[in-house]
Write a protein that binds this DNA or RNA. Structure first.
Lengths: 233, 233
DNA sequence: GTCTATACAACGATAGAC
DNA sequence: GTCTATCGTTGTATAGAC
């Protein structure tokens, strides 16, 4: 089912369902203490709007510079209304991080679980991460640029996200080295560099868009570059 | 004089003089309209303190979250005193960017001017950029993380910085490809990836420090990785 | 469940004493 | 050249009407 050969961004969009509504329903059900709304039908819809508006404004001018008055205007509600969904402004990063972490973990593990060959597994991990960051661009950008400002527990959520991703790549490179498929390289360094390339896609998105580089082009290039280094010829 | 063979971080620190005081004197002399202080002896010393404090606080909590009251406390002066050096809070990013841009341009061009061989030139460009970012870590971090929030003209200064660096690498790769020393690769893509690696050094500095990776270790690794891709064997 | 009106703290900036 | 005192604005957060 999950074959790397046929994986393109178009195929990813068909196969991998990332519904913001579903995830917000999960958050809605978990966060009964801070969210004062009872009706899920109403609550989830507004929660989606709040998250989308917060991501948009934060990415434009920074989370700290975004005022809650602006957030209310952007998401079409009043100050009083907003405070039925959050306890303070600092709740927003927590909700946003939570939402992205659930999706990232789910999609990565689902798509990698039945691929054993290190080279194929590496290619799939790179593609899935790139495609997911393309789909959830505002979230990835937010998570990277704003995390350092937040409270300790949100920072830790983000750190564990980072390490989770990095470990996936380290593990694959290590396995490939051991089984002799890859050349003998430093797995930790190599994973760092691969991650830097993946991050460049969503951090410098405007640059690649201007150059008319599609996410598939970029994925192909990263994979050929990585293979050039790992597959000793 | 500028031989890449002997270039290490230790040698860089001995050879390349980057005096914050000298640069601040330049700024002090240029910015006679906003800076109301007449005596350079006093003015330059405080300007250095202001820039250092602003970089420290901005990198800890973000430029927007840093209050000018904190900045005054950190740099040992009063609100009234501070306003003899700046016209508004928005002056700070301009001064900080200006300062770094002068150093970056000077150091890069000085160290590359008499190296012709593309492979040597590429190695030197990578090393100088890494060593400079190690020395001016707070500035590089600030320039990357805060630029998007500022006024159009500061943004443009930063953009031209980015392009300046990227063009250096593009040009070297292109020359190497034409002369047959490098394999036939996409210069634009390749320069992007190299830049992403250089950025990872100052953006994830804590990570490498924890792993006890020195800037020389990192430089060696980046260069071996790049050579593996460029020098067809 | 959502709105308007308001409280209160913190911010950037300035005036005037020294 | 530097300080203290103070201004007006804007921010987060809440209370009470509907």
């Amino acid at each position: 089912m999950h074959s790397v050969g046929s994986m393109t961004y178009e195929a990813f969009n068909r196969q991998v369902m990332v519904s913001l509504e579903d995830i917000c329903l999960e958050i809605f059900n978990d966060d009964t203490s801070t969210i004062k709304i009872k009706n899920p039908k109403i609550g989830v819809k507004k929660l989606v709007k709040i998250i989308e508006a917060a991501l948009k404004l934060s990415n434009e001018k920074g989370f700290h510079a975004m005022s809650l008055r602006e957030l209310c205007q952007e998401s079409g509600m009043s100050m009083g209304g907003l405070y039925a969904y959050i306890e303070s402004k600092d709740d927003l990063p927590r909700i946003i991080h939570d939402q992205g972490r659930r999706i990232l973990g789910k999609v990565m593990s689902e798509n990698l679980e039945d691929i054993r060959d290190p080279a194929q597994r590496l290619e799939m991990a790179i593609r899935i991460h790139l495609y997911l960051s393309e789909r959830m661009l505002p979230w990835f950008y937010f998570a990277y640029m704003e995390t350092r400002f937040f409270s300790t527990d949100v920072k830790q959520m983000s750190m564990s996200n980072e390490l989770y991703t990095e470990k996936i790549f380290e593990k694959i490179v290590e396995d490939g080295c051991k089984s002799g498929i890859f050349a003998q390289v430093e797995p930790v360094f190599t994973a760092s560099i691969i991650k830097a390339m993946l991050q460049d896609w969503y951090l410098k998105h405007w640059k690649y868009k201007n150059r008319k580089v599609s996410v598939d082009d970029y994925a192909d290039f990263v994979i050929s570059w990585v293979n050039g280094f790992l597959i000793a010829s």
